[in-house]
């Protein structure tokens, strides 16, 4: 496992796209958070909105980049055929996936911390005077890490980076869109509880926690289940299939 980790880390470090994507995560997250905060012109502390959550809106944009980064970690190997070289060097396939998962989680976490802190700082400067809830910040970092794992698992299962990024983005955004058009409030709530994005982002809610369809940590739990399911499916297919 140690050598697998070392190898995966070297691989990610020397891949030309990684640094750019990591920067893109930070820029897109902070940038869109700032844009949203600026667009919401309301009196300090007095617009009845969940300001911590508002200044973390960029996470919902940055997650798309995180997903692409994670998909590329294995997807690019499938598309170049290098996955066979990898599996020749490291025949224990679950170890390979585990090592990739650790590296992805680490890189995403390291990227997410400045992205989230940057968003909160910018939000605090634009809409000063609101209390920043630590749970929302820590939760957002965990959220992005889990999105990364979801992307990795999906890409491992799909074996095609283009299809995988399509599937992950579809999975993330299909629930909120459907939840918006579903007329039945009960169903709408269920959809928001089940969707990886709508449930996972409940961790950002700081104001009226009851107004959110699912509790903050339960919501993150739902996303964890999604990520685990994706990794498990990917792991099983990787172990079963001929490379």
């Amino acid at each position: 496992m140690r050598s697998a980790l070392h190898a995966e880390w070297t691989k990610l470090r020397t891949s030309p796209g990684t640094l750019g994507l990591a920067l893109a995560v930070i820029v897109s997250t902070v940038g869109s958070s700032a844009a949203v905060a600026a667009a919401t012109g309301c009196a300090p502390g007095g617009c009845g909105q969940d300001l911590t959550r508002l200044s973390l809106t960029g996470v919902q944009v940055g997650q798309a980049v995180v997903a692409v980064l994670a998909v590329l970690v294995i997807g690019d190997e499938y598309s170049t055929g290098m996955v066979r070289v990898t599996l020749t060097a490291l025949p224990r396939r679950t170890t390979v996936l585990a090592a990739k998962a650790v590296v992805v989680a680490g890189v995403v976490a390291v990227t997410a911390v400045p992205a989230v802190l940057g968003s909160l700082t910018v939000g605090w400067f634009i809409l000063p005077g609101h209390e920043v809830v630590p749970r929302a910040a820590v939760g957002s970092v965990l959220y992005l890490v889990l999105i990364g794992l979801l992307g990795l698992g999906t890409a491992t299962a799909a074996r095609n980076p283009a299809a995988a990024s399509g599937i992950v983005l579809g999975l993330l955004y299909v629930f909120p869109i459907i939840a918006q058009v579903v007329t039945d409030p009960g169903w709408r709530r269920h959809l928001q509880q089940a969707g990886p994005m709508s449930a996972g982002l409940a961790v950002q809610a700081t104001g009226d926690v009851d107004a959110v369809p699912i509790g903050p940590w339960q919501g993150l739990g739902v996303l964890t289940l999604w990520a685990l399911a994706a990794l498990l499916t990917g792991g099983l297919l990787l172990a079963r299939h001929d490379a």
Partner: peptide, 11 residues
């Protein structure tokens, strides 16, 4: 096995 099986962006 396949000499082409590498990621083109890496040295």
């Amino acid at each position: 096995l396949d000499a082409a099986a590498l990621q083109p962006g890496r040295t």
